[in-house]
Design a protein around this nucleic acid. Structure first.
Lengths: 156, 156
DNA sequence: GCATATTAAATTGCACACAATTTAATTGTA
DNA sequence: TACAATTAAATTGTGTGCAATTTAATATGC
């Protein structure tokens, strides 16, 4: 298999065969699809994800948010500062363990949740797949993600 | 559906239910998984994608590369300049239509293809799924991507 | 034939991602 | 109790992505 008529290795370096490109390219499309819907809220897609995490539970550390989103402080620190500047969250050092920074919602940040409800509805329609299809795809991707993460850890 | 025992709307804004987060998060993991494998070639993941496109066909315009990868000149121009600086490609204006810039491989760029063959093999293993699974997932994602793209065009 | 519209790249500005390092606080350990 | 090791954020630097604008060349309509 994977050989052309003349015996050369084929298709391994063909873009159309790349699962990873499908993932990469779809992820970019996701961000672009969210952009006009999130513009009304003044949020970028990663900022929206942070807000979603905080709407589930307030007063989380940067580390806890980072673990849920698989993002490090290099990404989160400036992003959180922007959310703070926008008046949606507060950042304060944990008095018990001063290494940690606790992130909490402001009233504005909490209130935004209602307006944000419309976003996943609109995106769900844009995906154009049924709920069972979406659930199946999601779990397959999460499995794939876990496999990739452990393969990265194996190298280290 | 989607209601908690007390009747509140539930689960719509829960991260674990987000197909889009699964895509976003897996895409980040893909980039991280490629990074150590591409380091030997001195390429980033997007740069690798451009090289893959060029290994399939030389002398493509920036626009043609952009259409295949769904990237615009804002992303490609600086990326291509880095590949040029690295001695892997050449950039020259099309003499027939001077609006266009033609990208071609240098000998070094062409030679890299051989060494790059090992990358998709390693990544394939890291994914930890069978070839039929990968193909099915890829086509589902591409379908989703097309749906998203047309939904974006609908808004405009 | 010429003004207008369209097109292809490049540029500008902003916001991620992430590796690597730094800073400061806490933990563990002899 | 010292002091090395670990941990949590922040910082620094590089490379995307992409919207919006600009520049230059080509196509189109009258």
């Amino acid at each position: 298999m994977n050989k052309a008529a003349d015996g050369r290795q084929e298709s391994l370096l063909k873009l159309e065969n790349f699962l990873c490109f499908a993932i990469y390219s779809t992820a970019n499309a996701v961000t672009r699809a969210y952009q006009p819907r999130l513009a009304a809220l003044g949020l970028t897609y990663p900022q929206y994800l942070v807000m979603v995490v905080l709407w589930e539970a307030e007063n989380q550390t940067v580390k806890a948010i980072g673990e849920k989103l698989s993002l490090d402080s290099g990404t989160l620190t400036p992003l959180l500062k922007r959310l703070e500047t926008a008046g949606l969250i507060t950042r304060r050092r944990d008095t018990v363990d001063e290494r940690q920074v606790l992130i909490a919602l402001t009233d504005d940040g909490r209130d935004m949740k209602q307006r944000a409800e419309a976003v996943p509805v609109a995106i769900g329609k844009a995906f154009g797949c049924t709920m069972p299809e979406a659930k199946a795809l999601r779990s397959e991707l999460m499995q794939l993600r876990d496999n990739l993460v452990s393969s990265i850890n194996d190298i280290k």
